[in-house]
């Protein structure tokens, strides 16, 4: 099965010959840096980064440095505060990079969760199969990078349990997500394994409504809101920096709370 994370059409290998000097230069640069640091990866993969001015590059470098600082500050055993059910906001706040009118609901019966990368059992999952896995409920604060917050009540499969179940390489660096609304995202493995990181299927005890990511979304207490993709269609475990929708546009990648 072709990985959902790879392009459907493979580029002409001739491109490599055309750009051989450039490729060699990049390889040399990689060697000079003495290996692939997160910063180097960001620089090399580049993605949609349009900001190529010296100031922009310097600011990016600090942001990459901050990824490292945050990873060091992150305590995998530190639990986010949980709140009483009476404080839960119903319905929760909606946000996306487009208006709510443009949300495209998903047919739950036809939906499949595909797996890719460093996972031993890559068979796709149906909603019913996921519902059979052990579930956890968390009542946590959602903090948006914009500055607003609210208390939400989420339930679903702990991502750790799911990754263990499919035989994922838990020593890999990243867990990446693809979504039906073209909103790729990725988190570090330590945050993925945190007990308050869920593949959420329900909000406030009821099935996840369409605009909040039905049938499956990520909900983690240890990341900013934009690191929680909705309408997830595929998960990949990888050592290659995957970036993300907003991350490629300038928001800090680690974005840990």
């Amino acid at each position: 099965m072709r990985s959902p994370f790879r392009p459907r059409t493979v580029p002409d290998p001739g491109i490599l010959d055309d750009h051989r000097p450039l490729v060699r230069q990049i390889e040399r640069r990689g060697l000079l840096r003495g290996g692939l640091t997160l910063g180097a990866l960001t620089m090399l993969t580049g993605c949609d980064v349009t900001d190529t001015t010296a100031v922009g590059r310097a600011l990016r470098a600090v942001s990459n440095f901050n990824d490292g600082v945050q990873a060091a500050l992150f305590d995998p055993r530190k639990l986010a505060p949980e709140y009483p059910a009476s404080q839960v906001l119903k319905p929760p706040r909606f946000n996306a990079y487009y208006d709510v009118e443009d949300v495209k609901p998903i047919d739950g019966a036809a939906w499949r969760l595909e797996l890719a990368g460093l996972i031993s059992d890559k068979r796709p999952w149906t909603r019913r199969q996921i519902a059979e896995l052990p579930e956890r409920e968390i009542i946590i604060r959602h903090v948006c990078v914009e500055g607003w917050d609210y208390i939400g009540q989420w339930s679903g499969v702990p991502l750790r349990a799911f990754l263990e179940c499919v035989g994922a390489d838990l020593t890999a660096k990243y867990v990446a997500f693809k979504s039906a609304d073209d909103y790729p995202s990725s988190i570090d493995m330590a945050s993925a394994l945190h007990p308050q990181t869920l593949l959420a299927t329900r909000y406030a005890g009821a099935e996840l409504p369409d605009p909040y990511g039905y049938p499956l979304r990520l909900r983690t207490a240890v990341k900013l809101g934009f690191k929680n993709p909705k309408w997830i269609t595929a998960i990949e475990v990888t050592n290659t920096y995957p970036g993300g929708y907003w991350e490629n546009r300038g928001f800090n990648w680690f974005a840990g709370l």
Partner: peptide, 30 residues
């Protein structure tokens, strides 16, 4: 300005550093 704290209190673009929130955040954390 990305999400005001006091409703109605908002800074004009001329005194903001960064053309949008992500850029302002990059400056702030540097």
């Amino acid at each position: 300005d990305d999400s005001v704290i006091i409703h109605g209190v908002y800074f004009p673009k001329a005194i903001r550093l960064g053309s949008w929130a992500a850029e302002s955040l990059l400056w702030h954390f540097a």
